[in-house]
Design a protein around this nucleic acid. Structure first.
Lengths: 135, 135
DNA sequence: ATGTATGCAAAACATTTGCACCTGG
DNA sequence: CCAGGTGCAAATGTTTTGCATACAT
C-alpha cells in the first residue's frame, strides 16, 4: 500500500502521485524515462501534465522512493527504489537493462575512495554490453 | 605533434581543430566542458564558434582522440584520450576529478558480463565522494 | 576545384519554472 | 481554510543542425 509510503516521506497523497507510482510498479519494464511514464499514463486514459510527471519523479527521488539513472543518451531513466543497491548492464543491441550486484566490487570501490581520503556518497557503474555470440 | 594525429584519423588539419587540441593539452584541468573549452579559446584571443567546439569535440571522440563523460549535472566533460583506461572519482564539495584504475574491478566487470553471456563494449564507473575528515 | 569545415542563427531536446487555479487534510 | 500540488506555457541549458561562406588539399 503506497499511500502510507507517500505520507511517510511527507508528501500529500494526490492522484498524480498515486498514478505515477502505479505505473512504476506495474510496468513490465523496470527502467522508464519521464516521457515513457507520461505516455503510459495517457495510454491508460489518465490526464496529467508532463511537467507534473517530472516534478513527481524528482520528489520521489529526493524521498528515496525512486532512483534516477543517467545512462548514455541524454535521457534519464527512473526505477522504483524497492530493491537493495545494484548496478546496471545495458545491452547496446536490444536496450535491455540487467541489474547486478557484486559485493567484491562494492568493497573495492570503498577501499579505493578511502585510499584517497574520501567517503563514497554515491556511485554509478554501468556496463554497456553486447551479446557474446554476436556476428 | 598533433597534425599527424588529425591526419591519421582522417580529419583535415584546420585551425579550429588544432586550437581545441591545444586547449585540451595545455589546460591544467583535465576534464573540460565544451563551454569551458570555448571560453578558454576566447580568453586566449581565439575566435571560433561554440558550435564548432561541439563539432570538433564530437569528431575527436569518434576518432578516439578524446573521451566524453557524462557526470551528474547534465553537462558533458571531455578529456584527452592520451592515457590508458581509467575510472573517475568526483569530489562533490570541490568538483575535483580524480582518476583511478583498479585491475581487480576491471576483471570482475568482465566476469560479470560474461556470466550473463555478454561482452563489455564500454563501461562507466564514477564514484561521487566527499572528503573523509568532513564536518 | 571541390569536398569539407566553419560561423551564425535557429532548432531540437530534456528538464525546470512562474503563475493562476485546484485540492487534500 | 490554506499550504501545497497541478496544468499550461514559457524559460532554461545543453547540444545539434541548416545553410551560405571559407578553407585545406
Amino acid at each position: 500500500m503506497e499511500e502510507r509510503d507517500l505520507r511517510n516521506v511527507g508528501l500529500k497523497v494526490t492522484s498524480p502521485r498515486l498514478k505515477v507510482l502505479k505505473i512504476l510498479e506495474e510496468s513490465d519494464v523496470r527502467h522508464l524515462t519521464a516521457e515513457a511514464v507520461y505516455r503510459a499514463l495517457l495510454d491508460a486514459g489518465e490526464e496529467l501534465g508532463l511537467a507534473t510527471v517530472y516534478r513527481v519523479l524528482t520528489q520521489f527521488e529526493s524521498a528515496g522512493l525512486v532512483a534516477r539513472h543517467n545512462f548514455e543518451g541524454g535521457t534519464a531513466v527512473f526505477e522504483l527504489a524497492d530493491r537493495t543497491h545494484h548496478d546496471h548492464m545495458v545491452c547496446m543491441e536490444t536496450g535491455t537493462v540487467i541489474e547486478f550486484c557484486d559485493e567484491r566490487i562494492e568493497q573495492l570501490q570503498h577501499d579505493i575512495a578511502e585510499k584517497y581520503g574520501y567517503i563514497i556518497e554515491d556511485h554509478s557503474l554501468v556496463l554497456y554490453v553486447r551479446p557474446k555470440q554476436d556476428t
